[in-house]
Design a protein around this nucleic acid. Sequence first.
DNA 1: TTAATATATCATTATCTACTGATATGATGA
DNA 2: TCATCATATCAGTAGATAATGATATATTAA
Lengths: 127, 127
Amino acid sequence: MLLSDDTASGLSVKAKFFRGFSDISRLRIIEALRGGPLTVGEIVKATGLTQSNVSNHLGCLRDCGLVASERKGRYITYRLSDDRVGDILALAESLLADVARGVYECTRYGESQSLSFPHASTDKETP
Amino acid sequence: MLLSDDTASGLSVKAKFFRGFSDISRLRIIEALRGGPLTVGEIVKATGLTQSNVSNHLGCLRDCGLVASERKGRYITYRLSDDRVGDILALAESLLADVARGVYECTRYGESQSLSFPHASTDKETP
DNA sequence: TTAATATATCATTATCTACTGATATGATGA
DNA sequence: TCATCATATCAGTAGATAATGATATATTAA
């Protein structure tokens, strides 16, 4: 098995890890799980996403190492895999709060900053 | 300006923030900047990416609040916007080290785990 | 002013990703 | 066993994303 630079240095794994946090639906799921373990059905209710969508995202989050699952009868309970998941979110929140303060104090831009890669609207939420 | 739930709760901003970390090329740039501020040209050399690609990613990272830039003559110097950017990476690294340990001790899987969303190969680096 | 350099933007394209609806698997209780 | 419930997987699709090559915008030096 031949490893490229990216896999060797772990950049590939790291990118996948952060991809777990980089989607609104997954963030909703993670936020829900911050309150404690939940079954898939409970997550569906808490997030308002469809069952199949939640299941896909949970698979993604599990593969990224962000959540862990345990079967109990016909229910499967998911929980955050590690306290550091919450720590990372907390750090991001504090940083973003400061950035927001900076953006607020900056009058140079109009109301629609891209916050994203060029040619990508990426912002379904603010049409 | 009408704000949806996502923008109001900041989920949208948070997702964009983490998207900054969720790409191998951007991680390379961030790693390079962890050693100190660099001009665009220096980043191009350090990462091996093309100039236009680097410029696009830098724009993305700046919009995400991960880096800040300052013009000096005809050079533009980029730096990580905040120590917490490095802190977040360090937390992720320590968590991933433990997850990797767990994966290593787990004999249940073959060598090709998806670590990603279904139907997405996502793994150009290990063909 | 002109040429040269540093960086940003544009247009295009191939690929990736999230979502949906339908179906499959797996566990439990009747 | 069969029916039912909980969850996972599949196939298809619209839209997002990263990369490239070409071009545009600064800024400085000649």
